[in-house]
Nucleic acid binder design. Structure first.
Lengths: 296, 296
DNA sequence: AGTTTCTATCTGAAAAAGAGATACTTTAAT
DNA sequence: ATTAAAGTATCTCTTTTTCAGATAGAAACT
């Protein structure tokens, strides 16, 4: 098993082209480098350098092993960097629950930035259905969550409003409803309605959104979007979820003759209060709060 | 900078759940493990284990660092494995030139097997045009090559026939030639011919293949296949290159009224004789020889 | 309560690492 | 051709590190 010092000597010698120079760089005697390299050669059984000339030059085998040596030193650096990040109080892992409706490009972009800023923090992402985030926070399963505004929150965590999202009725461009310039309740009632259903079965709020007697339920709003694109029924979805389909024309927004503003729903970020927040959680909270939501 | 022994002690302790057991596993005294872990904790500044109970249990930070420790040991293993493979005489790298006409699924499959058999051998793949492989072998640029049979080889390397490939005239299903039940020379001469051109410009053999006065040249036969699919001209190509397009019907084979068999061309594998072959080269040579070519 | 199994810590011995000196070789310059 | 500079291998001796063994105390199990 190669020793760390031997590897360092090997690398320094290969890079500087001489054992003496390597010794100077490592602040060690030349003999130390010479011994280290020789021991490495003995242990591996591979001739690393060609010593026929004054300056030792890497053999082909040495060149191959040098790459592996670099790989080892890189993982060593990762180790020490991770240790340093832990010393700075950074969380080793963080669980973030983002309601499926809200898993949208700016959030994804924020996560990319997060990865760059905290490369050593492991992030677990949950994408629960509607209204499941509060329970995940309360139970401690998630450390932070992004969710649509609730009427009443369970005890045990903080939350903060950060924007708004608009719920709009949409259907395929080929759907019969698409040909109407305006739709009212009875128009909608004549066609199948697709409804995002919470995993949490006891949760049966949002009755106000159920208009049609012919309903289907789906766990994920993205599944619903797929069905809509296939021309199946209509649904009241958040703009952000179907933004792409709306811009490319696959889906269209239905113009309503009723309740113009009631569908504007707040977006909250919530976090547990029991567990102390580290730098990563603070960063996330701060940047989530600064996000601009497209319909907000 | 963490020491290899310290990391081993850390890992063994984490896995076995006790410093004493780790000591037994590593054939060291318990005190050695205890010291190693403690020193690692001091150097990193991170508490790795919770010692409040009898058996030390990993802290959250310890768990995070354990993963990095595993990564280090894995790269150490890679180092020693590569050293072992070099001791067995395996080449550290190998250059294989495969003429573009012959870069076909069974060869790709063979390379996949090669990668599994010799994970530490770096493979450089060249995909030269027609008739360029012998020069690559002669000059030492490539160690081994797969090529179409040549009339006369330069000195300095061995070769062995391993199969045959059929050259067929093809065109798009929408091309005027496609409507003819049989084609003769004068039919072909009326349309543009696409010809694979060697990188090696002085090489101007295969005049026998040039039939039409209206020719275009392309370096890669795959580029030619693309042009053919777009309905541009016809070409005499190896079946293996356009097999996919032939089966899905995009391209069709033209039935000729002349020289039925002259287009059957041998496939050779060649290798340099100056450089001693290692196990990897031997393996490749043996398995290339065993390949079944679809038109062979 | 007694026994077992564990950890931390101390001590001394053994091993390893490393500095310094020396002899010899190669490269470059005079 | 000779000299000077820079490099390597190897030897010796010192310093440092590593480690086993012993011991005391804590935690779990019977």
């Amino acid at each position: 098993m190669p020793n760390t010092d031997q590897l360092n000597a090997f690398i320094a010698a290969a890079e500087s082209g001489s054992f003496s120079a390597a010794g100077r760089r490592l602040k060690k005697a030349q003999s130390a480098v010479s011994n280290a390299v020789m021991n490495l050669e003995i242990e591996t059984g591979v001739d690393l350098f060609d010593r026929s000339t004054r300056k030792p030059i890497l053999t082909a085998a040495g060149e191959a092993l040098l790459k592996s040596a670099y790989a080892i030193m890189e993982s060593h650096n990762d180790f020490t960097n991770r240790a340093r990040s832990l010393n700075l109080g950074e969380e080793s892992n963080l669980c973030l629950a983002i309601e499926q409706n809200l898993f949208i490009p700016p959030v994804v972009h924020l996560l990319v930035q997060f990865e760059r800023t905290f490369p050593h923090v492991e992030l677990e992402l949950l994408d629960p259905g509607e209204n499941d985030v509060p329970e995940l926070l309360r139970s401690g399963r998630a450390d932070m969550g992004l969710m649509l505004e609730q009427e009443n929150y369970p005890q045990g965590f903080h939350f903060r409003g950060i924007g708004h999202s608009r719920r709009v009725p949409v259907c395929s461009k080929d759907h019969p409803l698409a040909s109407l310039s305006q739709v009212n309740h009875s128009d909608l009632r004549r066609y199948r309605q697709l409804i995002p259903k919470s995993l949490n079965l006891e949760e049966t709020r949002h009755h106000e959104h159920i208009l049609s007697p012919r309903v289907w339920y789906a766990e994920s709003p993205f599944v619903i979007a797929e069905l809509l694109c296939a021309g199946l029924g209509w649904a009241s979805l958040h703009e952000s979820v179907v933004q792409e389909e709306l811009t490319n024309g696959e889906l269209i927004v239905l113009k309503r003759t009723y309740q113009q503003d009631a569908s504007l729903q707040g977006i909250d970020v919530g976090w547990t209060e029991q567990q102390a927040q580290g730098p990563a959680a603070k960063w996330l909270l701060q940047h989530l709060s600064g996000l601009k939501f497209n319909s907000g």
